[in-house]
Design a protein around this nucleic acid. Structure first.
Lengths: 155, 155
DNA sequence: CTATTAACGACAACGACGTTGTCTATTCTA
DNA sequence: TAGAATAGACAACGTCGTTGTCGTTAATAG
């Protein structure tokens, strides 16, 4: 029930910190007109980027199969955050691009994350927060985000 | 692709830190004879505790339905980390208890987490690591861990 | 220039995870 | 003692990931 061995606390706190930020982000996004956005969507849309991508490329970026990436794209398309169009220079490819609504989510997310960060700074101090970020940078991979979170944790 | 807005980095680093610790834990657990342990299993077994629980109680503790808790217990039972027995004082209940193998996972996990923590301390310094933990404690809920990670992130 | 190889996207099947709903058995309570 | 509440089992459903297959299109080797 409680956290007995000292080493158990660190991973727990890291995850709780992540979860708190993501939960508050989405509570605020819902208030601002994006109730259907899910945690993974933000990561996916950021991986898509302003230039757009394809399912295969997105899968590679996020460390999942092209089929999994395709399904996520479908969901994003249904919500209206993404649209697909054939590549005129390669008829096989379908370019995935963010819609204005999708861009809006990213813009608002950036703003909200900044606000949340400021709230943390108000609690622990700006300097300590900078230290925290710098320290985490030293012990985490510079690698990109891997999207296989659901299966990674549970399966 | 990269992390442009400053506010995007903090949640990412927190999650990467969590993921690195969990991944290294399970790599080491696999080496020490526990290749089937999954990230969620550790959290579940810790929630079960030395006294044991029931599916309903476990579900409440972890914030999931009793059916979901029951399925997780089934998996843990199949791997051999948990065993079930009827409660003699209440024939409806089935007490879930850790097997010696399940206890072994927790003991080894505690040791491995301590080692990983020491490795972080060697990189950023023991004092800074203590600050980091103290700061995270201030901005995270004292609430328990919620196990709905897969669905929470993706669905 | 043609034939083989490679890549993209779509479809289906599968297992894991969560959910809600239903059902029986047992215990508690009015 | 009758009725309400609880524990657990079972089924159905939707989502997410996986692998495997297939048709179409592009790149490349002969």
């Amino acid at each position: 029930m409680s956290i007995d061995p000292p080493g158990f606390e660190l991973p727990l706190r890291l995850f709780l910190g992540f979860r708190v930020l993501i939960d508050e982000l989405h509570a605020e996004l819902a208030r601002q007109g994006h109730p259907h956005a899910r945690p993974m969507h933000g990561f996916v849309m950021q991986a898509i980027g302003p230039e757009g991508t394809t399912a295969v490329e997105l899968g590679r970026t996020l460390g999942v199969s092209k089929q999994a990436a395709g399904k996520t794209i479908e969901t994003l398309e249904r919500i209206g955050y993404v649209e697909r169009a054939r590549d005129p220079r390669d008829t096989r490819r379908k370019i995935v691009r963010l819609t204005p609504s999708g861009v809006d989510v990213l813009v608002r997310s950036a703003q909200i994350f900044d606000d949340l960060r400021a709230r943390w700074a108000a609690v622990i101090g700006e300097e300590r927060l900078r230290d925290l970020e710098a320290d985490l940078r030293k012990v985490t991979p510079h690698d990109v985000f891997r999207l296989d979170v659901p299966g990674w944790f549970g399966a």
